[in-house]
């Protein structure tokens, strides 16, 4: 007869991971390192003839008490956790700023399609409303797990500081130029001349520069705190 309470190694490791994630003093890098250690220990013990369950419990015991461990990790690098937290705060600030600037062309399109809309709510209120909607939408997706911030794609993106800087700035530039072009198009279509009395290229350049200035602050923080291997230039002996 099939044993109802068969040991599920993956579920057990998953449980342990959640206990680990509950430790506020460990960075995601620390957790990843401890998890590979646990998995190495389990496979080694299995090779020595223990079954999955025995291997798991012994490996877990050897890794040690997670709370005590977390305290030791903090002593070794007290600022590590805060580096990670400030990194994600800056990422949030960048996303929020970026989303806010994308509302401007949306408002321009809405204003063009529904000329009467401007009489009901003013543009700033409308863009704030759109912005709040976007933020809530993204928060909802993250909370439901539809958006994974630890995806391999994102991980490869933030692996190298130089690549990260180039990619982020070019994505921002492309997005801004796109927004500016839409606004220019709406202005031309609605014959709203005071928007670009200095010519189309000056308009796009102005728009891109003005909206990039604020975003460069969180970008600089992100580049500075990027949790990469080349935080210090490796001096291989």
């Amino acid at each position: 007869m099939e044993n109802q309470t068969r040991f599920d190694l993956n579920a057990a490791v998953e449980n342990w991971r959640q206990e680990l994630a509950a430790q506020p003093n460990l960075t995601s890098d620390d957790r990843r390192e401890l998890e590979t250690h646990l998995r190495d220990a389990i496979s080694e013990l299995c090779r020595h003839g223990l079954n999955n369950e025995e291997s798991f419990w012994l490996a877990r015991r050897r890794v040690g008490q997670l709370e005590q461990l977390a305290e030791e990790f903090v002593k070794a690098d007290p600022a590590a956790v805060w580096r990670e937290r400030v990194f994600w705060m800056a990422a949030g600030a960048l996303a929020a700023l970026f989303l806010f600037t994308t509302t401007t062309p949306l408002i321009a399109i809405i204003g063009y399609c529904f000329p009467t809309a401007g009489k009901i709510v003013d543009e700033l209120t409308l863009s704030l409303m759109l912005w709040v909607l976007q933020i809530f939408g993204i928060t909802f997706l993250i909370a439901r797990g539809n958006m994974n911030l630890q995806s391999p794609l994102l991980a490869s993106f933030i692996k190298d500081r130089f690549r990260f800087a180039i990619m982020t700035i070019s994505v921002l530039l492309i997005a801004k130029t796109f927004c500016a072009t839409i606004m220019l198009w709406v202005y031309v279509a609605s014959r709203n001349v005071h928007g670009f009395n200095r010519g189309p290229f000056a308009f796009i350049g102005n728009y891109v520069f003005a909206s990039l200035v604020l975003e460069l602050v969180p970008v600089a923080i992100l580049i500075w705190l990027l949790p990469t291997q080349n935080r210090k230039t490796p001096k291989r002996a």
């Binding site: 401890l34 250690h37 890794v63 990790f73 002593k75 070794a76 291997q229 210090k232």
Partner: peptide, 23 residues
Amino acid sequence: WSDGMLYPVLHRLERDGLIDSEW
């Protein structure tokens, strides 16, 4: 060594610039 305790040692050595790490 209690296994987990090695990692703080490694991280301290890394912070002091004596070792470097790479995934």
